[in-house]
C-alpha cells in the first residue's frame, strides 16, 4: 500500500510528464504550447541579468542602467503569456466542487458556456487594450511614438508591453473560441 502510494507520488511528481496543450485547444493550442519555450527560457535570461547586475554593482561598483527595467519587462511579458499558456493547457485553477461532481454531459455543457463567456470577456478586454495601445504607440499628432519608461535609459518597454498585452488578449479570446467549438463537437 505504501509502495503503491509511493509509485503514485513518483508518477505525479518525479517524472514531470509534459502533457502539452489539451486536445480541444486545437492547432492554436499546440502553437501556443510550443512558443511557451521562448518565454520560459527568458525567465532564465532575467535571472542571469539580475546576477550580472549584482556582480557589476558589488564587485565593480558600476551598476547598469538597463538591468532592472529589462527584467521587469521580461517578467511582465512572461506573466501575460503565462495566462495564455495556462488557457491552452487548461491549467488555470478552478474550484471544482460542482464541476467534478456532475456527469460528463453536463461538464461538457459547462465547458462550452465557460469558454464562450471567457472568449467574449477576453474580446472586450482586447478592445480596451487596443484603446490603450493607441495612446501608447502614437503621439497626439498621430506620429508613431512608442511610450517610453522615462528613465535615464528610456527604453520603449511600456509601449511594447501594452502592445504585447493587446496581442495576447486577442489570442486568448481566439483560443477560448477554439475551445468552445471543439467542446461543442465533443472532439477529443
Amino acid at each position: 500500500m505504501a509502495d503503491d502510494l509511493d509509485t503514485k507520488i513518483e508518477q505525479a511528481m518525479g517524472h514531470h510528464d509534459d502533457p502539452g496543450a489539451i486536445p480541444e485547444a486545437g492547432l492554436l493550442g499546440k502553437a501556443i504550447d510550443k512558443l511557451g519555450l521562448i518565454f520560459a527560457l527568458s525567465l532564465i535570461v532575467s535571472m542571469l541579468i539580475l546576477i550580472n547586475e549584482v556582480v557589476l554593482r558589488y564587485v565593480f561598483n558600476s551598476p547598469t542602467i538597463w538591468a532592472h527595467e529589462t527584467t521587469i519587462f521580461i517578467c511582465g511579458m512572461v506573466f501575460i503569456y503565462g495566462g495564455l499558456y495556462c488557457v491552452a493547457r487548461d491549467q488555470h485553477i478552478r474550484v471544482v466542487l460542482i464541476y467534478d461532481a456532475v456527469s460528463d454531459k453536463w461538464r461538457r455543457i459547462m465547458n462550452i458556456v465557460i469558454s464562450v463567456v471567457s472568449a467574449l470577456a477576453s474580446l472586450i478586454f482586447a478592445w480596451a487594450a487596443w484603446l490603450m495601445v493607441q495612446r501608447a504607440a502614437f503621439s497626439p499628432d498621430g506620429a508613431v511614438r512608442l511610450e517610453r519608461s522615462g528613465s535615464a535609459w528610456d527604453p520603449v518597454y511600456p509601449g511594447l508591453t501594452k502592445i504585447g498585452l493587446f496581442l495576447i488578449l486577442a489570442v486568448i479570446s481566439l483560443q477560448f473560441l477554439v475551445l468552445a467549438y471543439n467542446y461543442t463537437k465533443g472532439r477529443k
Binding site: 514531470h16 511557451g36 519555450l37 525567465l43 512572461v78 506573466f79 503565462g82 495566462g83 495564455l84 495556462c86
Partner: peptide
C-alpha cells in the same frame, strides 16, 4: 533546465493571473 523553466511558466501564469 528546460523542464524547470516550462514548469515555472505554468505556475507563474496561474499565480499572477489570480492577482491580476
Amino acid at each position: 533546465l528546460k523542464g524547470a523553466a516550462l514548469q515555472s511558466l505554468r505556475t507563474v501564469g496561474m499565480i499572477v493571473w489570480i492577482g491580476i
